[in-house]
Simulated scan of single mutants.
Amino acid sequence: IEGGLLASPPPHQYEFARLNLTYVITSKRKLAQLVYDHKVNGWDDPRIPTIVGLRRRGYTPEALQLFAERIGVTKSDSWIDYSTLEGCLREDLELKAHRGMAVLNPVKLVMTNWDEVMGVGHLEPCSQPALPHAPHGASSDAAPEGTEPPPARHFTIGKEVWIDREDFEEVPPKGYKRLFPGNKVRLKGGYVIECTGCTKDANGLITEVLATVVPDTKSGTPGSETVKVKAAITWVGVANGVNAEVRLYDRLFLDAQPDAGGKDFIESLNPNSLKVITAKVEPSLANALPGQNFQFERHGYFVADRVDHVQGRNPVFNLAVGLKDSWGK
C-alpha cells in the first residue's frame, strides 16, 4: 500500500441504496420545505417520517426494528410499500396495546324500558380486560414472567349510551347485522338490546336510536348467552363517558411516489391527511399517559399525544394505524 499507512488487504467501501417509502418523502431538504412553508405542523408532525414525528404517531422502536429486518438492504433502487411499515406496527401492538372503547361518530341510544327493568337512574357496573390476549400465546389471564396482569377496565352502563352512527340503519342493507328496527345486538361487556326505532330532527337527521334492554343478559353472568345475537357493538356510557380530541391521520401524499422523476411533490399533498373530531371515550382512556398506545376496539390503534394530551384533564389521541390496511379500498 502506498506510503505503508494501510494494512493489507485494503478496506473496501460498500454502498447501498437509500430507503424509498411510498406516500412519504425522506429528503431533508424537502421535509424542511414542508415545515417552513407550514404544510405540516412542525418537525414532529405525525405525518412525516422524522424520528419525533414517528414517535408522536405511535410508532415503537420494536416496530421499526421489525420493519428494518423485513425489508433488508439492497444495492438497487426500489420502493417499499407504506403498508409494510404499518403492518409491522400492528404486529407489535396487537399483544401489548391496552383495549378501550371509543365512539368516533356518536349518536345517543336510549333504552326506553331501562327504568322499569333496572330501576330509575340505576348505573350498572361493567368491566372488560385491558388485554384480551396474553403475550407469547399464554392464557388470557396470564402475564409475562415477572409482571402482573394489567388491571381490568371499569365503566358503567345506564339508560343512555353513545354508539357510532354507522351501527344503526333504519333500512338495513343486505347482510347488515347491527342495529335496525326489530334486530337484537349485544352492547359489548353489557346487555343484549333490541332496536325499536329512532327519532329525527326537522331535517331528517337521526338524533336518538331507541331500544329495549333484554333482562338477565349482562355479559359474564349466568344465562347471559341464552339470547343469541349475530353482532356486538362498542359503546360509551353517557353517565361517565369522556370527550376526547381525536386526530385521524391519513397518508400525506396522494401519489405513491410524490417526488420521483422531478415531480412537484407539493402538488401531490393530500388535503384530507388530517381530520380532527371530538369523540366519546371510556373513563380509563382519559387517564392514559402521554405516548401510551391503545387499541380503540373496532377502529384501530391510537396513541395519547405526547405534546397536547394531559392525563385526566385534556385527552388527545392520534390515529397510529387502522386495524387493517384499507388504503384505496
Rank of each mutant, 00 (worst) to 15 (best):
E62W: 01
G58E: 08
D81S: 12
Y82I: 02
P61D: 07
R47E: 15
V52Y: 14
D44W: 12
I51W: 15
A63Q: 03
R47I: 15
R47Y: 13
K75E: 06
I71R: 08
P46H: 08
V40G: 05
F67C: 02
F67K: 00
P61C: 03
R70S: 06
Q65C: 03
I71P: 00
L85A: 04
G72S: 12
T60K: 08
W79C: 05
A68M: 12
D81L: 12
V40R: 06
V40K: 04
V73G: 10
E62I: 00
E69K: 12
D77Q: 02
Q65F: 03
E69M: 07
E62V: 02
G53R: 04
A63P: 06
I51K: 15
I71C: 05
R57K: 14
S83R: 14
T84E: 10
T84F: 03
S78A: 10
F67V: 01
K75F: 00
E62N: 07
D45G: 05
W43I: 15
D81W: 13
D81Y: 14
L85F: 03
I71A: 05
E86N: 05
R56C: 06
P46F: 11
D45K: 02
D45S: 06
W79A: 07
T60N: 08
A63V: 01
L66T: 13
D44Q: 15
V52E: 15
P46V: 05
Y59L: 08
R57I: 04
T50H: 11
P49V: 08
N41D: 15
R47P: 01
Y59P: 00
E62H: 01
T74Q: 14
Q65G: 00
T74R: 14
A68I: 08
Y59F: 13
E69V: 05
Q65M: 06
N41W: 04
S76F: 03
D45F: 10
A68H: 10
S76C: 01
G72D: 14
V40E: 12
Y59A: 04
Y82K: 10
T74I: 00
G42H: 10
L54S: 09
S83Q: 12
D45L: 09
I51D: 15
G42M: 09
G53C: 10
V52P: 13
F67D: 00
E86S: 07
D81T: 13
I48S: 07
R55G: 08
E69N: 09
P49A: 10
L64M: 07
R70W: 04
G72E: 07
P61K: 03
I80S: 09
S76Y: 03
T50C: 08
T50Y: 10
L64R: 00
G42Y: 12
F67Y: 01
D44F: 11
G72Y: 09
G58N: 06
E69A: 05
N41P: 00
R57G: 13
E69H: 06
L54F: 14
